[in-house]
Simulated assay, not measured.
Amino acid sequence: MASSPALFRQAVQRYAPWLLGVVVAAGVWATATGDMGPRSPLPGVVAVLLAVASGWAAAQVRDRRWPLFLAAAAGWLVLAAAPAGVLASYQAGLRLRGRRLAGYLGGAAVVLAAGVLIGLHMGGMRRLTTASPANALVTAAYLVGFPLLVGLWVRARRDALTAHRDRAERLEREQEARAERIRAEERTRIAREMHDVVAHRVSLMVVHAGALEVTAADPATVEAAALIRSTGRRALTDLREVLGVLRQASPGRTPEPALDALDELIRESRAAGLQVRRRDEGAARPLPATVGRTANRVVREALTNVRKHAGDADATVLLRHLPDGLEVVVRNGPSTGGPALPGAGLGLLGLRERLELLGGRLEAAPVDDGFQVRALIPVADWP
């Protein structure tokens, strides 16, 4: 069921043109009777016909403009009625461009000049209101100039809003495309590293199965070992094919630095002017290469963000060795000022995707006037 605002908008869109037509027709009739201008000496049926025609033309202006322009010219020349002319000038400024707008201005000038000649011929109140120099200039201003400028201003605002909306939608699409590209790159990198780990385990299975096939005396055991060995070899073949596809999709990629390159990364950050301290907690133990590379990426991205947004703040890198994982915390204090570099936040998005694929999690949030990036990388299920 439609909401009240939606129903109101539908009602306005449906009935507003006809309401506008009624207002224009009433204005033309009021001019002919002398309530809004010089009283017309013509028969009343002429005024009725022009009022009805002007109202109908105003109601049809969304679809057709030329009836309104004709009704405006006829209403001014016959009755000196301005309502249709004001609406026509507004619509010209709103919807006409280039030669069509110039053509309207030329036609309006001809109609105004003809109105002056008719006023001079008819004399009386018509001459006073439309043919005297001062009133002719005022008539040109309120009949053509001012409504035309209002229409041009409204059109310029609409064009600007449309341009801003299109630009915002385009930027949003580009942002989504960049985010999707980063997710795909992370999945590709993780899949490549998973290949290394799984291939190592399957290779061990094949070796042990081959040894069991040679040394076992039970025929059933020998048959099972042979099956395991052949299946493992087929799995290794499939893994090599997958790796080949991944390398073709990402040619020329060099291995990422692991955890042993963390000190070098911190030294580079210090050389760049960042004040960084490192702390280690817990008993360190050998970590899988994938875990080390992920930890290095977390620290590198976090320090990059510190340099961008708080280059004068102190930063601490904490590695906490847990029984079932590695916790990496990079925290910086408050910044004392200075310009911040722009960032799109896609680096943290890629890290979060990478950690979720590994079964970990990433948290990034302000804390104590600073900022903290915390990553938990599980290692219990890794060799």
Rank of each mutant, 00 (worst) to 15 (best):
F8Y: 13
Q13N: 15
Q13T: 15
Y15M: 08
L20N: 07
V23E: 09
A26G: 14
G27C: 10
D35S: 11
S40M: 02
G44M: 10
G55K: 10
A58E: 13
Q60G: 12
D63C: 10
L68T: 08
L68C: 09
V78Y: 06
A80R: 13
A82R: 10
P83H: 08
G85V: 11
V86I: 15
L87H: 11
R99Y: 05
R100C: 02
G103Y: 07
A113Y: 12
A114G: 11
L120A: 09
M122K: 06
R127Q: 14
T129C: 05
A136W: 12
V144M: 03
F146Y: 14
P147K: 12
L148G: 05
G151Y: 07
V154S: 05
V154C: 07
L171C: 03
L171E: 13
R178T: 11
A179Q: 13
A184S: 08
I190F: 14
A199T: 09
R201A: 14
S203F: 01
M205T: 14
A209Q: 00
T215A: 10
A217C: 03
D218R: 04
A220F: 00
A226K: 01
R229V: 03
D238P: 05
D238A: 15
L239T: 05
V242E: 04
L246G: 01
P251G: 05
A258F: 00
L259C: 00
L259G: 01
L265H: 00
I266V: 15
E268C: 00
S269G: 02
S269H: 08
R270L: 08
V276H: 10
G282R: 09
A284E: 03
R285V: 07
R293C: 03
R297T: 05
V299D: 03
V299C: 05
V306P: 05
K308W: 11
L318R: 05
E327M: 01
V329T: 13
V330F: 02
R331W: 07
G333V: 04
G333N: 05
P334C: 01
S335D: 03
G338S: 07
G343T: 13
A344V: 06
G345N: 07
G347R: 04
R361C: 05
L362E: 04
L362D: 03
E363V: 09
A365R: 10
P366H: 00
P366F: 01
F371R: 02
L376R: 05
I377N: 04
